[in-house]
Design a protein around this nucleic acid. Structure first.
Lengths: 231, 231
DNA sequence: CGTTCCTGTGACAAGGACGTAACATCTGTA
DNA sequence: TACAGATGTTACGTCCTTGTCACAGGAACG
């Protein structure tokens, strides 16, 4: 799960553009990273690529229905833990039971109050996200404290620049996961920044050097043709 | 007053369950302790029991009205210091004057923006807490007495201006934590004030000079690309 | 073994972030 | 009004960070 301690990522799946806009705007205003999908296929793709922290899912969708997406997500172990909030129009209310049966974690009826939806999103996030106070990430002997922006490796404080810090944060949020260069550019550099993807390589190198500045093995793994991973 | 320097307690008085939920979620998400009351009697009881740091009070309530509760609180000396933020529907707006007359410290009209309400809650707390908390904050050899507004470093009294004092207070409430320039502007300057974020840098410089006016290391840490921290 | 593609890394120029002095305002006070 | 203290803004210098390139080393593959 892509838990950026600062900005959890929300995936909004909604085919109606106006609705999508509203959700996008409000969620972003609340400080979330937001990605949107207009149909089921795009949604499933983005779940892979973006590893969102939570999904807001419209019931009625062209192609694969919301309920089907939800079922698929909840059967796969990698995605089972991502909370899903279902949206449905009042007339579909009868299906509420079925919605929750498929594993949706919460259920909101249109027309919904934006405030209420925000509250429910936060609620689900709070329920699911590591309850660790002060957001401390750990992998092996590497400890990253998001609040103080400090990183240590076996008692030695590490000195690393802003970009390396963000890179390492991303890796430590999900140790073992392989991130493509594009995904890293998205998360670490920002969605609409253009930089050469080789730049990632250079920064990986810098991060490696920083992590080993007091000795120890290189914990970063290069996955040829795919990207990089921690451990 | 229930002074936990980490988590101030907010009492929410609101009869409408959905509204109460929204407030509860949002305030809790912001890190407050929250207690809720559905009517006036419960509210007055909880004020005794929980000694909240601030009260968010709906105007329309079954039984004792919000305005009456506010009047009662503001006449008793034990509770006079607790800030009250009134909520009222637009149609009741005409009563704004009367609301403030009874001693409410701020006034928000429904439908309100959650962000705005949070800002106002924080504003009121910031206004009152430093004075009431009367705590002595300490970090290393630096001692800050909120009540007397005095700061010493290893027996030497330090001379610093109001802004530097507030800055230092913020840092000392959570040593080590990195504050972004925007967060500092929020807390130290106030939410709706517009000042250039570089101004923070200048005041950090002034605070540094003040802290070292009798020698000693600079305890403030610059975190490039992120902000500043104490220690 | 040779070719081709992918990755690691040193060098470097450009840009950005930060520290600070100087200046103009503003406020309260005598 | 004159004055002192405090504040916000600007400008400029310095240092750090960063993106890109070029080239070398290696892996996959026939």
């Amino acid at each position: 799960m892509a838990v950026s301690s600062e900005h959890p990522t929300v995936l909004v799946v909604e085919d109606e553009p106006a609705q999508r806009e509203v959700l996008y705007y409000n969620l972003q205003a609340e400080g979330f990273e937001v990605v949107t999908a207009a149909d089921g296929d795009e949604a499933l793709l983005l779940v892979e690529e973006e590893a969102p922290d939570i999904i807001v899912l419209d019931w009625m969708l062209p192609g694969i229905s919301g309920i089907e997406i939800c079922r698929q997500l909840k059967t796969r172990s990698e995605t089972r833990g991502i909370p899903v909030i279902m949206l449905s129009a009042r007339s579909e209310e009868v299906d509420r039971v079925r919605g929750l049966e498929t594993g949706a974690d919460d259920y909101v009826i249109k027309p919904y109050s934006v405030l209420e939806l925000m509250a429910r999103v936060r609620n689900q996030l709070r329920r699911v996200r590591p309850a660790t106070v002060g957001q401390r990430l750990q992998y092996d002997d590497i400890v990253l404290d998001a609040e103080t922006h400090r990183v240590t490796r076996g008692d030695h404080p590490l000195k690393l620049g802003p970009t390396e810090f963000r890179l390492l944060t991303t890796f430590m949020e999900k140790p073992g996961r392989v991130w493509s260069r594009e995904q890293l550019l998205d998360r670490v550099w920002g969605r609409d920044i253009y930089v050469d993807s080789r730049t990632v390589d250079v920064h990986i190198g810098r991060l490696r050097k920083a992590l080993c500045q007091h000795g120890g093995d290189d914990p970063l793994r290069t996955v040829r043709g795919a990207g990089y991973a921690l451990g």
